[in-house]
Simulated scan of single mutants.
Amino acid sequence: MGNSGGSLTTRSAAGLRGLMESAGFTEVEDGEPPAEGWQVADFAEYGRRSVADLVRETGAPAILVSFLDSDVAFVEAVTPEGGTWEAVLNRDMADDYGIPLDRFPVEAAAREALAWASAAGLTPDEELLHQALTGAAAFAEELSSLLFVALGLSGRS
């Protein structure tokens, strides 16, 4: 069985682990920072509104990636100014699971992801972003790593 948890990455200087636990995330563990000034925490489960609540509380951009048995990754990103975007990675596998892909349009996700990265002070790579959003891989974690590189969080390669 693959990964069914996820990770939350944020630019917040606040103690991420404690904030996540109080926001409803379970089994929170510190992860390796993807870039200077960013924090990562891995988790087992989270509440649906936890990312937006955390961003409101910290005033810092955040991106959450959760996995469905390492086959599919769901991405949700939020900025303090209210910018949000969602995506599903490993779309062919997501389709096999019956996940409605029309809820995750690639072009809208790409446009909003570029805006999110810029608002977060990152330098995104549009071509890599498109590859991450449309690519296929044996494990969704591979596409998640590519996504982080594409967003400018290059330490996640």
Rank of each mutant, 00 (worst) to 15 (best):
M1W: 02
G2V: 05
G2S: 13
G6T: 01
L19S: 05
L19K: 09
M20Q: 08
S22C: 04
A23R: 12
A23W: 00
A23F: 14
F25A: 13
T26N: 04
V28L: 09
E29L: 15
G31A: 14
E32V: 09
A35R: 15
E36M: 00
E36V: 01
V40K: 13
V40A: 06
A41N: 06
A41T: 06
D42R: 14
G47V: 11
G47F: 02
A52T: 11
D53N: 11
L54Q: 09
V55Y: 14
R56K: 15
E57M: 09
G59R: 13
I63N: 07
L64Q: 14
L64M: 12
V65H: 09
F67Q: 12
D71G: 04
V72M: 06
A73P: 00
A73Q: 00
V75Q: 05
P80L: 01
E81W: 01
E81Q: 14
G82D: 04
G82A: 06
G83M: 07
G83K: 12
A87G: 03
R91A: 02
R91Y: 01
M93F: 10
A94G: 12
A94V: 02
D95Q: 10
Y97R: 00
D102T: 04
P105R: 04
V106L: 10
E107C: 00
A108E: 15
A109M: 14
R111I: 02
E112A: 14
A120W: 00
L122H: 04
T123R: 08
P124V: 04
P124H: 11
D125V: 03
E127C: 03
L128K: 14
H130L: 15
H130A: 02
Q131V: 01
L133E: 08
G135N: 05
A136L: 04
A136Y: 04
F139R: 06
E141P: 03
E142T: 11
L143V: 01
S144W: 01
S144T: 12
F148Y: 10
A150P: 02
A150D: 01
L151Y: 03
L151I: 11
G152F: 15
G152S: 06
S154L: 03
G155L: 08
